[in-house]
């Protein structure tokens, strides 16, 4: 690992200054579960590592009827898995957070970190797409909210400029009947990356679908959603057109985890299982 300067600012302003002054040479250290691996492998060589875990605003986890859920940037996956309000109102998020890495890793890893790492297989990102999450960003100019699908630009590419820092994730309140589920297909049951993932969420009969690990970014399954929205009865048979649509919507690659062909097969099964599991939650 290369030498670097470690700083731990206590306020958002201080952090923004450091990030602005150092531009591309600074990296934000949150849980560190992705950053440190990339530094060890020399994929990145930051000169300044900015630890944001001392900034009070980033530690918040709160819910209001008006604004919905706010998950501060440094809230860990295990905190999310164990949050009563998330389990009650956004179970799909707790489910997805529980899929990330191992228990030990989830003590460090954060959902904001997962989003900012912008890996196509990031387990919590697809659920955030179907929940229409916004990324809350601080800069000296003020606070702005960016929809998650505008925030994630590509593999490990996000819309964050020098001097900007993610404060947390804002998820709108959900009104009416709803249910959601994240289905992850992986080689091993635990502690594995998604070979294919599907998040399915239904609110008052309207579906939102997102696919993971089958394109450079998480993809919304607009075609599948359209088909699902028209279905009166959802079961193994009536789901087939939506499963066919999913295949058309993705552009997977072959890698050491699976071939492209297997990913096409698994998107069908994952979509079916995610939708059926979401229906079981629907209430």
């Amino acid at each position: 690992m290369n030498k670097f300067q470690y700083v731990k600012p206590a306020t958002l302003n201080e952090a923004a200054d450091i990030l602005y002054q150092n531009g591309d040479e600074a990296s934000i250290l949150n849980g560190g579960t992705d950053l440190l691996v990339r530094m060890r492998d020399k994929m990145i060589k930051p000169k300044v590592v900015v630890d944001v875990k001392a900034i009070p605003e980033l530690k918040e986890l709160k819910y209001t009827e008006e604004e919905g859920l706010f998950i501060g940037a440094v809230v860990t996956m295990n905190e999310i898995v164990c949050s009563d309000i998330i389990l009650e109102k956004y179970k799909i998020l707790a489910e997805a957070a529980h899929e990330v890495g191992s228990y030990q890793l989830r003590n460090r890893a954060t959902m904001t970190g997962n989003v900012c790492n912008a890996s196509p297989s990031g387990d919590t990102i697809a659920p955030l797409y179907v929940l229409s999450a916004n990324i809350k960003i601080f800069s000296k100019e003020g606070i702005k909210l960016v929809p998650i699908d505008d925030f994630i630009l590509g593999v490990r590419k996000i819309a964050l400029k020098p001097g900007e820092i993610v404060v947390g994730i804002q998820i709108p309140p959900i009104k009416g009947k709803n249910g959601g589920s994240y289905y992850k297909h992986s080689r091993r049951k635990d502690v594995d990356l998604a070979t294919v993932g599907v998040a399915a969420f239904c609110n008052e009969g309207r579906w939102k679908i997102a696919y993971a690990a089958v394109a450079p970014t998480i993809l919304r399954g607009y075609k599948a959603e359209e088909i699902l929205n028209k279905l009166d009865v959802i079961d193994d048979t009536t789901l087939i057109p939506a499963m066919d649509a999913a295949v058309e919507e993705i552009s997977p690659i072959s890698d050491v985890r699976a071939s492209k062909e297997y990913r096409f097969d698994m998107i069908r099964i994952s979509l079916k299982r995610a939708v059926l599991a979401a229906l079981e939650q629907y209430a």
Partner: peptide
């Protein structure tokens, strides 16, 4: 699960991210 995946002598999965051994489950 286990296989050392190789391409022309190059090991493609020299880590536990892509070389999976059984977990407790």
């Amino acid at each position: 699960l286990e296989q050392q995946i190789m391409d022309k002598g190059r090991v493609l999965n020299p880590n536990f991210v892509d070389y999976k051994i059984p977990a407790v489950s």
